[in-house]
Design a protein around this nucleic acid. Sequence first.
DNA 1: AGTCATTTCGGAAACGTTTTCGGTATTTTT
DNA 2: AAAAATACCGAAAACGTTTCCGAAATGACT
Lengths: 340, 340
Amino acid sequence: MKHYTIKDIAKKLNVSISTVSRAFNDKYDIKKETKELILKTAEDMGYIPNPIAKKLSQKRSLNIGVVVPEFINEYYSEIVIALQEFLISKGYQVLVMQSDENEEQELINAQTLINNMVDGLIVAPTTGNRNMKYYQDRIKEGYPIVFLNRIEESVPVSKVVFNNMKWSFFATEHLIRQGYKKIYHLSGYKDLSVSYERIQGFKKAMNKHHIPKENYKIIETGLLAKEGMEVIEDLIYHHDVPDAFFCVNDMVALGAIRKLKDNGYKVPEDVAFVGFTETRMAELVTPQLSSVKQPTFKMAKKAGELLIERIEDENAPIETIVMNGEFNIRQSSVRESSIL
Amino acid sequence: MKHYTIKDIAKKLNVSISTVSRAFNDKYDIKKETKELILKTAEDMGYIPNPIAKKLSQKRSLNIGVVVPEFINEYYSEIVIALQEFLISKGYQVLVMQSDENEEQELINAQTLINNMVDGLIVAPTTGNRNMKYYQDRIKEGYPIVFLNRIEESVPVSKVVFNNMKWSFFATEHLIRQGYKKIYHLSGYKDLSVSYERIQGFKKAMNKHHIPKENYKIIETGLLAKEGMEVIEDLIYHHDVPDAFFCVNDMVALGAIRKLKDNGYKVPEDVAFVGFTETRMAELVTPQLSSVKQPTFKMAKKAGELLIERIEDENAPIETIVMNGEFNIRQSSVRESSIL
DNA sequence: AGTCATTTCGGAAACGTTTTCGGTATTTTT
DNA sequence: AAAAATACCGAAAACGTTTCCGAAATGACT
C-alpha cells in the first residue's frame, strides 16, 4: 500500500514527470487528452500529492497559523472559529496552537508554524511579552503577520484591537450613573495590554465624575473565576465590600458573584456587577450579567483579511483597526431589577 | 536577510554538507571540534534549519495533529490543553484543527494534517460519521491514529472513551431516588455515539426502577443552551413540564433553566436538573448544577500515550480504554436544598 | 613496518515536487 | 511549399535536508 508519486504515474504512462506535474497545475502547456488521461490514471491509482515536497519547491502552503494565548475562555474559541470560517472560504486551512498563557510556549508555537511554512501568522500574544524581537525580525524579513489584541506598540505590523478604554469607560460610567458610590475594578493582569486599557477607561470615568480616590480601587486579578473568588474572600475578611464591581471579564465576575452569594450577599441588591468580553453565560446566569460585547467575528474576519492582503501583496499598507462593541445592560447592574 | 542553508555553512567552512548535517544530528561520526565549530558558525550566521526539507528526507515531523469537533464547549478546549501539555513533554508539538461539527470539514482537517506529515493523529469525530472509510484506509496503511469519544465500533483502532452509559445511569437513578416522578432527558443528537450511550443509561435506570413509560421521555436536542431553551418553550406551550431534567450537557441544562426561570418556575423547587460533562459553570451558577464530571485530563493524556506507543512501535496493541468519572450532586437536583 | 580497526569525512543519491529551457511536432501564415 | 508561429513535451536543475557508501586519515597492534 505504498504511496504513489508522480514518477510512478509518469512511468506507467510513459510520459515525463514534468508532464504529470503539468496535468495537476494546469497553468502550463499540456494537451487536453493527455491531461485527462493523467488525471484519470492518477485517480485510479489513488495518488495523493505530497504537500511537503510541494512546499519545498514552491513557496506557499495555503496554510495559515493562528497562535492564541488560551482557549479556555470562550473568547479565543470564537475567534478561532470565525477565523477558520473566513480563511477556509479564501482557500486556506487553519492550524491552531495555543500558548497556555506562557511566553515560551508562544514562541515555540510561532516558530513551529513558521518553520512549517504557513503562509502567514495571526498572533494574539500572551501577557508579557518578550517575544517581540522574534516577531520584529520575521516582519522585517517580510513575513506576513497580523496581531490581534494585547498589542505592543513597538512592532510595525497590522493589528486588530478592541477599543477597550472607550467601552471600559462606558461600563464604569453606567455604574456611576446607577448611583453606586463605591466601585472596585477587578483588572486582570496589569501587564496585559487589554487590562491596562480597561484600567485607563475606568480611571477616566472616575475622574470625569469626580469620584474621590477612597471610593474606588483597582485590584489586580487573573482571568479565571477562581481569582474572582479569592478577591472577594479577601475583601470580606477586611470588611471592604463595595457597592459595585467592574470586572475584566465575565468569568472573574461570576466567580466573585458566587463567593458573595455564598456569604449572604445579594446581587445586584447589595453588590452590582458588570463584566467584559461578554460570554454566552451572561444571559444564562441569575441575575443576568451586564457586559461589554466584543464583535468577535468581525474582529477575526478583519484580521484574516489584513493577513491575506499582506500575503498577496507584500506592499499592502500596515493598518491598525480599532473596533467597537456594545454594552448590554442586564439585571446585575441596575438598581431596580424590576424595571428590566 | 535571506535564509542560510547547510550549503552556505559548508561552503564557508570548506566542509561537505554531509558533515554539516552530521553536526546537527549527532548520531553520526564527527569529530568533536568540527562539530562545535559548525554549530558555532551556524549560530553566528543565524541559520535556521528547514523542517520541510527535513520532513521530506526523513519520515517524522515531531508534530501531532488533533482534530476536534468544536471547541465552543469548554470540554474539547480542556482536552486540547491537556493533550498539548502531555505531548509537549514528550517532545512533540500539537497542531489543532476544529471541524465545527461538520463532517466534510473534519475530513479536510484530517487530510490536511496527514498530508502535512504529522506523525500521528488524535481524532474526536463529529456527529455522523461518514469519514470512517478514510480513517480505515489510513489505519490499514499503518498510520497511527487514536480516537477519542464518539466512536464507531467498526474501526480497529485504539480509543479512549468515557463510560457514558454507566454515569448516565447513576445520574438518572439519583433523580429517581430523590423522588422526582416525571423525568425527561434532553439527549443531544441521537446519532452521536455519546448521546446514544447516555440514552441507554437513562433507559436502564428507568427500567430498573419500573418507571412507567408515560413518566419519562427522551427529547432530542442539540448541544447548545439555545436548544435547551427551545425545548422548554415547547414543553411549556404543551403544559408538559416534568419534575426533573437530565441533560446531555451543562449548556443545554443552563439554557433550559434560564427559560424556566423566565417563566416563573423555580429551580430546583419546581423542576430539578442534572447536567453532564461538567463545566466550570456548574459551581458558579445559582443554583449550582449537579453534573457528571469527566476526567478530561486523564482521558487526553491516555489518548496521547496510546498514540505515542503506536508511533514508536508499529505493533503496539490496539486498546480501548473506558474511563469513569464522578457524579457531583449539587443544589439543582436535591429536594431540600437546605441540606447541601 | 605492515596489517587492521577506528575515526572522520566527502560524494552522491534520495525524498517528491515545480519550473525553466530548449527541442520536436504540428499548425498557421505567406 | 517554405517559413513562421504555436502547441506540446522531455531533460534537468532546483528546493534543503538525510544518509548510504566508500575513502582517507589516524591510531593500535603485531
